[in-house]
């Protein structure tokens, strides 16, 4: 089917609000002396990553778009564009986001793109805009294919994806502690997403949700923010550069260098791309599981608590 359906580019229209809210957050932190931290170079790097991500979308967006139009031409189903269909599309697309995001942390090829969102040791509204430049190369657009084949128009799928990203902007803050109980139960919130950005063993590989936290609860990846364990933001191996080019490409370079090690088989190279980050062919690599196990060994009282449910002292 080739009918036209046009939605506004919502992320573009959100830009002035993003800027305004960042200024409000800076002012809030400055005057209240709590609710987060800002560092100029870190925040500017995040903002440049956001700009670069938009540019990359303009330059490479056509690849995904052409794939989607092809699938739309292929499918015999057209669900139309009623409000109900848009709402269903939004919910299903959020499920799509959950899985893309989960792959983004568990498959190194996808992590190479997503890592830069986690490469800041800060957590404020600018961190939300620290977005990838290399998403197209992960080929994760295939996870959107079922939606289009089911009869959701490609323009609608991209529109609800944009709304999803806008929702996630405001949750990147330490200025909000907890939302009302019912809201925390259903929606992704600053508290839940702080956990996702944590490098504490307790918080690793948790809370992949975009808008609805229910996916994490359904698929067993939910970890609540624990009152007496403050989130330590960033990566297991924090990067030492503010250069946006290095931030954008460092994990791709690392994969390339791992591939070029002498004595590798093609299976090793495949594994360097698809195994979780930290995997090594010589067995000397790290993993989330190893870090959690070591943490529980050092702190036996944490065994069985949130994030360590499956670990015994």
């Amino acid at each position: 089917m080739t009918d036209m359906l046009i939605y506004p580019k919502v992320t573009d229209y959100a830009v002035p609000f993003f800027i305004l809210l960042i200024l409000v957050e800076i002012a809030w932190i400055t005057f209240k002396k709590r609710g987060g931290r800002y560092e100029t170079r870190d925040a500017m790097t995040s903002l440049f990553m956001g700009v670069g991500s938009v540019v990359s979308g303009i330059l490479l967006g056509f690849i995904a778009w052409n794939c989607f139009t092809f699938l739309w031409w292929l499918t015999p189903i057209n669900l139309g564009a009623s409000v109900l269909v848009v709402v269903i599309c939004f919910v299903l697309d959020d499920l799509r986001y959950y899985w893309v995001h989960r792959f983004g942390h568990r498959v190194r090829w996808v992590w190479a793109s997503h890592v830069n969102h986690h490469s800041s040791q800060h957590y404020n509204l600018t961190t939300a805009l620290r977005q990838t430049w290399t998403g197209t190369f992960t080929l994760m657009m295939v996870v959107r294919a079922p939606l289009i084949l089911l009869g959701f128009h490609p323009a609608m799928v991209l529109f609800v994806g944009g709304v999803n990203l806008i929702y996630q902007f405001w949750i990147h803050t330490e200025a909000i502690d907890k939302m009302p109980r019912w809201f925390e139960a259903v929606m992704n919130t600053p508290s839940h997403h702080r956990v996702h950005h944590g490098r504490n063993p307790r918080y690793l590989d948790a809370n992949y949700a975009g808008v609805f936290i229910i996916w994490d609860k359904m698929f067993g990846t939910f970890v609540p923010e624990v009152q007496d364990e403050k989130v330590d933001y960033g990566l297991i191996h924090n990067i030492g550069t503010f250069n946006p080019i290095r931030v954008a490409f460092h994990e791709w370079v690392a994969i390339w260098r791992d591939w070029r090690q002498p004595g590798l088989t093609w299976k090793d190279r495949w594994n360097y791309a698809v195994k979780p980050p930290g995997w090594r062919h010589d067995g000397k690599g790290g993993s989330t599981e190893l870090l959690k196990r070591r943490h529980v060994a050092r702190n036996p009282e944490t065994a069985g608590t949130p994030g360590f449910e499956d670990y015994k002292a």
């Binding site: 830009v15 800027i19 800076i26 100029t40 500017m44 903002l47």
Partner: peptide
């Protein structure tokens, strides 16, 4: 926006 954010920080 970038200039204002930089100035504010």
């Amino acid at each position: 926006g970038l200039i204002i954010a930089w100035g504010a920080m």
